[in-house]
Lab assay of single mutants.
Amino acid sequence: MAAGGDHGSPDSYRSPLASRYASPEMCFVFSDRYKFRTWRQLWLWLAEAEQTLGLPITDEQIQEMKSNLENIDFKMAAEEEKRLRHDVMAHVHTFGHCCPKAAGIIHLGATSCYVGDNTDLIILRNALDLLLPKLARVISRLADFAKERASLPTLGFTHFQPAQLTTVGKRCCLWIQDLCMDLQNLKRVRDDLRFRGVKGTTGTQASFLQLFEGDDHKVEQLDKMVTEKAGFKRAFIITGQTYTRKVDIEVLSVLASLGASVHKICTDIRLLANLKEMEEPFEKQQIGSSAMPYKRNPMRSERCCSLARHLMTLVMDPLQTASVQWFERTLDDSANRRICLAEAFLTADTILNTLQNISEGLVVYPKVIERRIRQELPFMATENIIMAMVKAGGSRQDCHEKIRVLSQQAASVVKQEGGDNDLIERIQVDAYFSPIHSQLDHLLDPSSFTGRASQQVQRFLEEEVYPLLKPYESVMKVKAELCL
């Protein structure tokens, strides 16, 4: 049975990233139509530049190519590739079939990587351009969430054990800070992308030097003109047959890092959902379990974690691919890159769409948070109580021993009897502590235990987050809708 299948058929496997999760716009960027249309555009740009620099290419040939950029006979191309065992030459023939007058000058002087690699770089750039505003929107939604809850005390956790208090907004800023680093890295790697350009079979530009009869300047002009037509500021000066596969490492490393950030955020949300302090959106008709109707599973956060793990592992592909590119190139890269580049971007696209949807509907339960604080705060307040007693004339050592005994009794009630923490009640009825009984409410005010959390939130948002989001103001209103 021949390899390949009808990918629109229910009898043929289709990647869930495309069929179930990723956005239509990201799927289109990695589609065959987008790819092969870009090949034709690159052939047109090459012909236009070659004509401008004096090669015998007519206006009629150029116009014929322009008129057929979208006229792609995919069936013919597939048949040609089956016959020739070469995808680029299959599309040269297919393009030439609908451009008979231009057929002889299509791909003039070029090698397969002229269309293959340059198209990949265009796709990487455009895919990054799709991700950047999506990530900015996630940051914006979380920034709104953090600002609104900047002063809401909550129990902090280290080692997932109760620690000092923080605020809900401050905790959210930990998430935002990681995503801001990801946004900066995505922008950097996007701006650092260079075009492969017009380089020939081993990167020496020998074929173009021959076409222009040894004119170095025209060869350099050709490279520059096509690079500018493709919208790049610069091209690699040095290439082998391909652009260095280190570029793929750079791009997928940034995406993998984004995956790590999203995994951490969504894990926190899942843990908070278990504590009943916070939940992701839950639709009115949504079913959490087929057997347990009360369940409210954090399905979206779980999906993000599941896909983020996949995204983090994909960076190993370009690392290994770059390491086995012998001399000017081997074909070890080809099949692998067809999979890992598309999957990385479709996965990143999915987790950003999902995280935006989550961040637009996060639900906080202040009463649950308050109750958990009441359970733990008495123990945390013991040092403040000791200091207040010393100020009232008591002995630190005597007070410490009193607190120690009462704390152990209260802990026994919590752990052995399943009761509430009654340390404060014990202190309130103990005559030894009568000098500070009137101060206990103040000493137990949760806001006095959150330090500068709310001020940190305000400063972080104003100095770091809002300036970073400013270039994306025009796209901030787009909502994230999930079908599944």
Rank of each mutant, 00 (worst) to 15 (best):
G5Y: 14
P10C: 15
S15P: 13
A22K: 09
P24I: 15
P24S: 13
S31E: 08
Q41G: 06
L42W: 00
L46R: 01
L46T: 00
Q61M: 12
E64V: 13
E70R: 14
N71Y: 13
E79T: 13
M89R: 00
T94V: 15
K101N: 10
H107Y: 02
A110I: 05
V115G: 02
D117H: 03
N118E: 00
N126R: 10
N126T: 15
L128F: 08
L130H: 09
L130T: 13
P133G: 15
K147R: 12
A150L: 06
T166R: 00
T167S: 08
N185L: 07
L186S: 10
R188H: 13
R188A: 07
R190T: 13
R190I: 09
R190S: 11
R194L: 08
F195G: 07
V198T: 15
K199A: 15
T204E: 02
T204F: 00
L209I: 13
F212Y: 07
V219C: 07
L222H: 01
M225I: 09
M225P: 02
K229A: 07
F236V: 07
R245H: 00
D248I: 04
I249Q: 06
V251Q: 08
L255N: 06
S257H: 06
A260W: 04
I265P: 01
E280S: 01
E280P: 04
E283L: 12
S289W: 00
M292H: 03
P298R: 02
S301L: 15
C304G: 14
A308D: 01
V315G: 08
L319H: 03
S323A: 11
R329D: 01
N336F: 02
I339N: 11
E343T: 13
D349N: 08
T350S: 15
T350Q: 12
Q356Y: 13
I358A: 15
V363N: 06
V368H: 04
E370P: 06
R374E: 05
M380S: 02
M387I: 06
A388N: 03
R396A: 06
R396Q: 01
D398I: 08
E401M: 09
L406M: 15
Q409Y: 07
V413P: 03
K415Q: 06
L423W: 04
V429G: 15
V429L: 15
I436Q: 02
D441H: 12
L444A: 03
D445C: 14
T450K: 07
R452E: 07
S454K: 15
E463R: 11
E463V: 11
E464T: 11
L468R: 08
L469P: 02
K470G: 14
P471I: 15
Y472T: 08
E473C: 13
V475I: 11
E481R: 15
L482H: 06
L482S: 11
